[in-house]
Amino acid sequence: MSIFSRFFGRKDDDTAELTGLVANPECEGRVSLQVLFPAALQVTQDGLISALRAYHPEMAEASCEVSDEVEQFFALAGWGAHVVRLVGFDAPFPAESVEACVAPAHYPQALKDEVRANASHILLYYAGHDSDPLEQYVVLAAVAGALAQFGAIAVLNESGRTSLPAAIFNDPGLVRESLEVLRNLPLTALYCGFVKYDVEGVQGTWMRTYGGGVFGIPDLAVLAEGHHEGERYSELFDQVMSYLLQSGAQMAPGHTMQIGETAFMRLRAPLAEEYFLDGPDQLLVAEIIEGHEINQA
């Protein structure tokens, strides 16, 4: 069966024997990461297989198939129940998307400039049989870590508007713990983004997450006093979103959650004048209040 048929989870005919990696046609493919390189792609099938198998013991039998029928990089990779689609181009990733992911990230400006000057990229899409979005992201991050051995400089999450240096995913000292490290990354580090921005005419700094919809949970936003509160709210939003994922709890406008001895977080829908919070997924605005304010309108 051709790699093109398996890439899209199709059989060539009703009696075709399924051999090699096959994408799951039931997988929506919403979970995606983008890997950027400073030069033309030099990724080979045998090299990527070796890099994947060396990444973690769970991936010891990982396989990869790169098509030789098209000019661009076109491949399937996977292990166990996991399958990843890879599509690469010897062309820069769109500048607007790069800027949205790089500008709010927390790594040196010099490296950000290198990422902005990228020359090629590979798109990763989860296409396996695990239904957990977090595990899907972990699988993609592991493939990104293997790709880091081919000179990758950054891993982007376009839907989360965030990015990390590729070297983080390819630390030789993490071989036996690499997947565990990826599973325990703060959500707001890569799998969901955390962005700060100032709005003209508004006193304070708006801070919000992106990408919660991929997990089936709302994004969160807050009007903070200033940029100095970024770490506080990044950690708070990560804790709240992690709680929602682990517990299956639901949050909606009007709900409150205790976040300290006397402090509570009250949630509301964005106001009409907060149009800048509009997005494709649900978002809730957090207001930090004291206990005696809980029942106040």
Score class of each variant (00 low, 15 high):
residue 160 G to R: 04
residue 124 L to I: 14
residue 275 Y to A: 12
residue 48 L to M: 05
residue 290 E to N: 07
residue 91 A to Q: 12
residue 95 A to T: 14
residue 100 A to Y: 06
residue 212 G to V: 04
residue 164 L to F: 03
residue 156 L to T: 02
residue 223 L to N: 15
residue 113 D to W: 04
residue 180 E to S: 09
residue 99 E to Y: 07
residue 265 M to F: 09
residue 272 A to Y: 05
residue 180 E to D: 14
residue 107 Y to F: 15
residue 19 T to R: 11
residue 127 A to C: 11
residue 14 D to E: 15
residue 196 K to M: 13
residue 17 E to M: 12
residue 16 A to M: 11
residue 213 G to I: 03
residue 78 G to C: 06
residue 185 L to G: 06
residue 213 G to T: 12
residue 209 T to E: 09
residue 3 I to S: 02
residue 149 Q to E: 15
residue 242 S to T: 15
residue 28 E to W: 10
residue 205 T to I: 10
residue 182 L to M: 14
residue 126 Y to M: 11
residue 67 S to F: 07
residue 192 C to M: 15
residue 154 A to V: 13
residue 150 F to R: 05
residue 199 V to K: 05
residue 101 C to F: 09
residue 66 V to K: 02
residue 272 A to D: 13
residue 171 D to G: 01
residue 96 E to H: 09
residue 292 H to T: 08
residue 58 E to F: 09
residue 189 A to N: 07
residue 168 I to G: 00
residue 95 A to I: 13
residue 265 M to Y: 00
residue 42 Q to P: 01
residue 119 A to K: 14
residue 186 P to R: 00
residue 141 A to G: 15
residue 31 V to M: 07
residue 5 S to W: 12
residue 122 I to V: 15
residue 228 H to V: 11
residue 165 P to L: 02
residue 31 V to K: 03
residue 32 S to R: 15
residue 117 A to W: 10
residue 92 P to R: 00
residue 44 T to H: 03
residue 164 L to V: 15
residue 66 V to T: 02
residue 209 T to A: 04
residue 222 V to A: 04
residue 55 Y to V: 01
residue 235 E to D: 13
residue 43 V to K: 02
residue 180 E to K: 09
residue 44 T to E: 07
residue 291 G to I: 03
residue 64 C to D: 02
residue 154 A to E: 03
residue 92 P to L: 01
residue 279 G to I: 01
residue 169 F to D: 03
residue 273 E to L: 05
residue 64 C to M: 07
residue 295 N to D: 15
residue 8 F to V: 14
residue 198 D to I: 09
residue 149 Q to I: 01
residue 49 I to Q: 10
residue 212 G to N: 06
residue 6 R to K: 08
residue 104 P to K: 05
residue 27 C to P: 01
residue 66 V to E: 01
residue 11 K to Y: 12
residue 20 G to A: 09
residue 161 R to A: 13
residue 90 D to N: 15
residue 17 E to Y: 06
residue 2 S to T: 15
residue 235 E to R: 11
residue 242 S to Q: 05
residue 114 E to S: 11
residue 89 F to N: 08
residue 88 G to C: 04
residue 227 H to F: 12
residue 13 D to F: 13
residue 121 H to Y: 15
residue 183 R to T: 06
residue 98 V to K: 00
residue 140 L to S: 09
residue 23 A to P: 07
residue 123 L to D: 13
residue 263 A to N: 03
residue 276 F to D: 08
residue 252 A to Y: 00
residue 233 Y to M: 05
residue 15 T to C: 00
residue 151 G to P: 14
residue 94 P to V: 09
residue 180 E to Q: 12
residue 39 A to Q: 14
residue 105 A to H: 08
residue 180 E to R: 08
residue 238 D to W: 02
residue 102 V to Y: 00
residue 278 D to S: 11
residue 215 F to S: 08
residue 174 L to V: 08
residue 188 T to M: 05
residue 39 A to F: 07
residue 225 E to Y: 10
residue 195 V to P: 00
residue 263 A to K: 12
residue 127 A to R: 14
residue 193 G to Y: 05
residue 41 L to G: 02
residue 130 D to P: 00
residue 54 A to T: 06
